[in-house]
């Protein structure tokens, strides 16, 4: 029960931030995919950089632990490409579709029903995928620092410096 309340509160705060930054709209999501307005990229990259530094700091202090997912190149590459096609058609991602509905965008409803159907379809296909795509290039639960054999702060430093440089470049280009 406590976990459910944590989930709800976290969601309300996140939905509030997403709406105030105007990043859950179809127009904004499509503009990002067409490289015309990078507001969403600015939002996401800022969140990733802050969370990356904070979470790893707390991992080093032994306060929290990472939840590492299995790297299957077949699943990530094919899944990512398929997701991109769907995202461009829908104009909302799974989480933001609920936020879009919250600010009155009713077309998100069609997307939500579609995503429920897509999830049901995936559940049907899962046994076959388990024997094929999911086994392709499977490296198990691994992180980038482990793969490169370097300290995680090296990867974080490169990511943050590169990320800030990229964002400054976007600002200079007026995106």
């Amino acid at each position: 029960m406590k976990m459910l309340i944590y989930g709800l509160i976290t969601g309300v705060l996140f939905g509030f931030l997403l709406q105030r930054a105007r990043v859950i709209r179809y127009d904004k999501q499509l503009a990002a995919l067409r490289l015309k307005d990078m507001t969403i990229v600015k939002f996401m990259l800022s969140a990733v950089m802050v969370a990356m530094v904070g979470v790893y700091l707390l991992v080093d202090l032994g306060v929290v632990k990472l939840a590492i997912k299995t790297l299957s190149l077949g699943a990530v590459v094919i899944g990512g490409l398929v997701f991109g096609v769907g995202w461009a058609l829908l104009g909302y991602c799974p989480g933001t579709s609920l936020g879009a509905l919250g600010e009155g965008r009713l077309d998100a409803l069609a997307g939500i029903v579609g995503m429920l159907a897509g999830a049901a379809l995936y559940a049907e296909a899962y046994p076959a995928l388990q024997k094929t795509v999911l086994t392709w290039g499977n490296y198990g639960k691994i992180t980038l620092p482990q793969l490169l054999g370097v300290n995680h702060w090296v990867v974080i430093a490169v990511f943050v410096v590169g990320g800030v440089g990229f964002l400054r470049w976007l600002e200079k280009k007026g995106l």
């Binding site: 997701f83 096609v85 995202w87 058609l89 104009g91 995503m115 379809l121 795509v133």
Partner: peptide, 12 residues
């Protein structure tokens, strides 16, 4: 788009 996006998201 929703069907396709969710299938891809779950695959990845």
């Amino acid at each position: 788009g929703g069907v396709v996006a969710m299938f891809g998201a779950r695959l990845a």
